[in-house]
Design a protein around this nucleic acid. Structure first.
Lengths: 349, 349
DNA sequence: AAGTCTGTATTTACCGGTCAAGAAAGTTTG
DNA sequence: CAAACTTTCTTGACCGGTAAATACAGACTT
């Protein structure tokens, strides 16, 4: 620890006084090297180090300059919820790769409304990435009022840059692949298709808005593909989980496999759910893919590492994160984009 | 969007003027409801909403009050590196659970030195959690100079709260278990045991400091257990990876299984590495656990979901995160802790 | 009726920097 | 050699709030 036995708080002012220069000179030593001689600057920096003054107070600097060097990433729901989702993780990894290099800090913000209830949302970040729609439109309004660059990911907002992946195309390819290779019944396990906070069959439940729910977009693709093939996936064969977890996936898969006729294929809207389905197949001694075909979505690393490896739709989560970060840092240089998805056929189909 | 056609910037001052009250009254309306009548407060809040003023500027407020409502989590290495580690993820999940509830924001900071090269580290957070040792002690010194609460996780620092898990105990239990059940050679696959940025056998490489590297602590336990059993694990049977990834684990496991005598057990210092070893066993048609026993560390969810399920040492990552957050928010109420680890014997041993 | 409380609202002095403009000293130019 | 530049450093006004002190009713004592 530096020599700070004196309780005096270190500020540009106090440091300037100690070194016998003006406050502006201290400030310039840190921010604008060209404004003073090299020797003086070196001396000042060395002295500051010795005193334990590690640079200007960021709050004061922000106040004066209006910049903070912080990008906010607002995640749907709570933060911890997102940390259970491999896709979100990979996305964040991409974001951080870029922000690390850009010397910018990352502030994580939950998208829950009540977090900001009585609280100022006029907050630190000078740019925002919204990963998935926040719980409540009022949050968006308040963000917009701040007139800062916003990039939305996995959903769109008028007048803002958005970054999406081709959910419809990927899901359709997956469904077509399954429709070609199996003649039997097909079951769907989806995430948050309907307004219900547990794993349920979708019948009798209220659909979530397809503009908001990417799962709804994927479902449309499944159903369209079936219709075009002259087949049908009845609502009684569609399950909706509340979270994309192994546990919920197991629940849904078990229920589905009790149906008769027993489904011969699962269209799963995430690899987590597909892994769960695979596990249930094993516990019921069903051969995959002979007795049961399984297709996932996302292509998380675990999909390749399991046996049999899971057929799934790849979406570039990492790239999505990198691009979102680059876009939010240079909004004027970009336009909204839709990233491609591709079907990866492996061993479960 | 609110009615902000006028370009005028909204501040307490301008808003106060518009509403014909003093700036302090606006401030109080947001921060201290008891300082003004309920009606006036309601009216002010409503007007602010209408005008699009969403509360005081956080930079200015921070400057004045000296608080920011931000906790910094500094991660070893880059941010993105940590997002590849399930344990770090689970830890962060725990942290965010608590911070969500405490209405506190989370700022993620890389532990790389060069990120702060020319930059002020006198930064926003008013408390810090250090997850793993930062790359460089100078960072710690600069953090300490700020005189803010610090909690260190997975390593210790004099005069600061620390939170560790019983790496030695867990690793020893794992090793003893293996020593009891197999008479053959034992190989170790560890993470960052030596100073080398790729997967290598540890021979001829410089050890990393055991005060800093939790892997070193685990290794000590393995070796002690062997010695106590009158056996030996030679350095030629110890591999060190640079990252705890599947890819690097595969590399190490393949090399190890080429040795003669062929190892009959793997002590892996993470479940990621154990999963990789399992995969290599499968590709070499070795039966697990008959031909090869595998023990991991951490007990990540995937360990239970794979077949065969992996024997591993459980460490409470989520709890660790929750506790770290609680500790940093109320440092005076806590003392340094070491959380227990427990061996979970499953199917790979 | 004078004195004391209470509840509301305002005044005022900072918080710790940064930037534009200005001053002092040395250098170049015509 | 004076005028015009440069270079280097200083001055002083602001950035947008907040907390403590102050002012001022009206209600309540005594």
């Amino acid at each position: 620890m530096s020599i700070r036995d004196n309780n005096k708080k270190l500020t540009v002012k106090s440091v300037a006084q100690m070194l016998g220069v003006s406050t502006a000179t201290i400030s310039n030593a840190f921010n604008r090297p060209d404004q003073l001689s090299v020797e003086l600057r070196q001396k000042i920096l060395a002295e500051c180090q010795r005193l334990g003054y590690h640079g200007p107070n960021p709050a004061a600097r922000s106040l004066r300059t209006g910049t903070t060097g912080v990008v906010g990433v607002m995640l749907t729901d709570t933060l911890s919820f997102n940390f259970t989702d491999p896709c979100a993780i990979e996305f964040l990894q991409g974001v951080t790769q870029v922000l690390d290099d850009a010397q910018v800090n990352l502030l994580m913000m939950p998208g829950r409304t009540d977090f900001y209830k009585e609280k100022s949302l006029e907050s630190l970040p000078e740019r925002y990435i919204l990963y998935g729609p926040p719980q409540d439109l009022s949050i968006i309004r308040r963000l917009e009022d701040q007139r800062k660059p916003i990039v939305t990911v996995d959903f769109s907002l008028p007048n803002h840059l958005s970054l999406n992946v081709d959910n419809y195309g990927g899901a359709k390819a997956a469904a077509e692949h399954i429709l070609e290779t199996t003649q039997g019944a097909i079951a769907v396990i989806g995430l948050r298709l309907v307004e219900c906070s547990k794993t349920v069959r979708v019948e009798r439940h209220k659909w979530l808005d397809s503009k908001v729910s990417i799962s709804r977009q994927r479902l449309e693709a499944y159903l369209d593909a079936a219709k075009e093939a002259g087949r049908e996936i009845p609502h009684s064969m569609i399950w909706s989980t509340y979270e994309s977890t192994w546990q919920e996936g197991v629940l849904a898969a078990r229920e589905a496999l009790k149906e008769s006729p027993r489904p011969e294929a699962f269209l799963c809207m995430s690899d987590q759910l597909a892994l769960a389905a695979l596990s249930v197949a094993r516990e019921m001694n069903l051969r995959v893919p002979e007795d049961l075909k399984i297709v996932g979505f996302d292509d998380i690393p675990a999909s390749q590492q399991t046996h049999p490896a899971i057929t799934t739709v790849y979406q570039p989560s990492l790239e999505k994160g990198r691009l979102a970060a680059v876009m939010v840092l240079n909004p004027e240089r970009f336009e909204s984009r839709i990233l491609p998805t591709t079907l990866h056929i492996r061993e479960t189909s």
